[in-house]
Design a protein around this nucleic acid. Structure first.
Length: 515
RNA sequence: CGGGACGUAGCGCAGUCCGGUAGCGCACUACACUGGGGGUGUAGGGGUCGUAGGUUCGAAUCCUAUCGUCCCGACCA
């Protein structure tokens, strides 16, 4: 295998962080913008985001939500209403204080002191407070409930340390906000949306996740319960890929989201909020990427099939025939469906050597690449590469040569197979890197200091301490650079003692290093 | 936000210590050869050396400030 000449210069095993950076640039997904923590998302990266948006938007609408849009700017006084929320976000806020620039006499522009805003505006880091404000107006009667809204938006959190897609100062997401009559219904909805995220991650992104409740110390500021889906990256670290919060009546009290119930009494709504972001794309890279670049699951691939005619650029007549041959294939494929949608197929007739273009598409991770040369055309076949199985045993790209008509027939099923293959590979990798049976903190420390390159996650049992006792646990884990990821839904009942306190355990949790 | 490293052509880098015409590889352009798997040759194009000040006859090089990137912490999705 070592004789393979891979398409990237950095290998995952050598420097995972540098590899991640290289995938993003080699696949032409995004680049730095010159503004700290902000990135330019290029067409291939944006195309993947559009696919995620499209599929998740459908799932959100299928669960009875309507889309809307709230302003980017939130009045400071509005944001101040929920105390815990303020504590959580105040440190990372972008603030607008002026509405005009003025020349400073030296050829530069400065904010005009005369144009200072009476009340500063914050750039939304999330929109619970401004949604709450509207909900208070929109909800009067039990008949107005449940109110189920969603918006696709950008948000800004002034991060100390940024990483493309995983943590950027500005990021894109959807944020759902709902108001309900009663705790039970709101809690049920919180879990329902968590399940939507699980399905989106596993079925659309082919990214296996573990859904569960976050411990008290990891809760969203202002939430009563926070739930997450956690994915394991190929370096064994955990990525929180989506969160769903039961907010109780905290935001209802702050904003006055009240309604008259069927008994004629005033009652507070119970609210939820939930979001997934462009961070998902980072998860896709670190779940499916390999030493040749990105591998995009067919469901979210902007192009699932790329047809590359090997044009000579000399003999116009031969080239034209080749293009015509490829166009027939293109047409035959476009009419078909896979994973419940029309195939997305592109015919890449741009100038340039076919071999160079092939490696570009390999790095971008197009699921199926079909090269067609003059000899293919003579023989009525095509040369097909599967991105999920790129290399043959001889260390060369593993080209298949089906007849053109057969290829056209076989591709929908092949795409579905690639989708499930990517999921299976990721799930096997994850399951192989979850360790159980560690019963003491010392054992845990030994496990994580044992020089294993990618130690993965450990499932431990604990007594679910709270308050100061929990803080102590968090500190103990921090010394090992570990965090509690979540308490998985549907785990086996605890049957041992707490790894931290020695008391009888009440549940199982995952601990891991995390992004 | 603290500690460290870095910023020179699209990408990767040398040159900086010791100031004196802006370099290399890949990529790109043209032409030729080649033609089923990341080809070869020849000839070219492209940079106010992150930005702004300062020192100097002269600054990529020395000094100051600033912006950005990466790594390690603290913080957080």
């Amino acid at each position: 295998m070592s004789n393979i000449r891979h398409a990237l210069t950095v290998k995952r095993a050598d420097d995972f962080a540098a590899w991640y950076q290289e995938v993003i640039s080699a696949a032409d997904m995004a680049e730095e913008s010159g503004v700290r923590g902000c990135m330019v998302i290029k067409p291939w990266g944006w195309g993947i985001w559009e696919r995620i948006q499209h599929l998740l938007d459908g799932r959100i609408k299928d669960t009875g939500h309507e889309n809307c849009y709230f302003p980017l700017f939130i009045p400071l006084s509005n944001f101040e209403r929920e105390a815990e929320h303020v504590d959580g976000f105040a440190k990372e806020m972008a603030v607008v204080t002026h509405h005009r620039l003025i020349g400073d006499g030296a050829g530069k522009l400065v904010p005009d002191p005369e144009a200072k805003l009476e009340e500063p505006l914050i750039v939304r880091p999330t929109s619970e407070t401004i949604f709450g404000d509207a909900m208070a107006r929109w909800v009067q009667s039990w008949r107005d409930l449940p109110l189920k809204l969603n918006q696709w938006a950008n948000v800004v959190r002034w991060e100390m340390r940024t990483r493309m897609f995983l943590r950027t100062s500005e990021f894109l997401w959807q944020e759902g906000h709902t108001a309900h009559d009663g705790e039970a219904e709101a809690k049920e909805h919180t879990l329902r949306m968590l399940e939507v995220y699980r399905a989106c991650a596993e079925e659309d992104l082919a990214m296996p996740v573990i859904a569960g409740e976050k411990p008290e110390n990891e809760r969203f500021p202002g939430a009563v319960e926070t739930w997450s889906i956690e994915a394991m990256m190929q370096d064994g670290k955990a990525l929180q890929a989506g969160t769903s919060h039961y907010l109780g009546t905290n935001f209802s009290e702050a904003a006055g989201i009240k309604f008259q119930n069927q008994d004629g009494d005033q009652a507070l709504c119970h609210t939820t909020s939930w979001g997934v972001s462009t961070r998902m794309i980072g998860g896709v890279i670190m779940t499916h990427g390999d030493d040749d670049g990105l591998r995009v699951p067919p469901t979210i691939a902007p192009w699932q099939v790329v047809i590359l005619p090997m044009l000579r650029g000399k003999d116009d007549d031969a080239d034209a025939q080749l293009v015509a041959y490829c166009e027939e294939l293109h047409e035959a494929l476009k009419g078909q469906s896979a994973c419940g949608e029309r195939l997305r197929v592109t015919l890449d007739t741009k100038h340039g050597k076919a071999s160079a273009k092939r490696w570009d598409w390999v790095r971008k991770g197009a699921p199926i690449i079909i090269e067609v040369g003059g000899r293919d055309m003579e023989n009525g076949v095509v040369s097909l590469l599967r991105r999920d199985a790129l290399w043959a045993d001889n260390g060369k790209p593993d080209f298949h040569s089906p007849a053109k008509a057969d290829a056209a027939q076989a591709i929908p099923a092949m795409l579905e197979e690639i989708q499930s293959n990517l999921f299976a590979q990721a799930k096997d990798q994850r399951d192989a890197n979850i360790t159980r049976g560690i019963e003491t903190l010392d054992q845990l420390g030994e496990f994580y200091s044992a020089e294993a390159q990618y130690p993965g996650w450990v499932e431990v049992q604990w007594s679910k301490p709270t308050g100061a006792a929990l803080e102590q646990v968090v500190e103990q884990l921090k010394a090992l650079k570990l965090t509690i990821r979540n308490v998985p839904i549907g785990a086996a009942a605890a049957d041992g003692s707490c790894i931290f306190t020695g008391e009888p355990a009440v549940e199982r949790i995952y601990v891991a290093r995390a992004y």
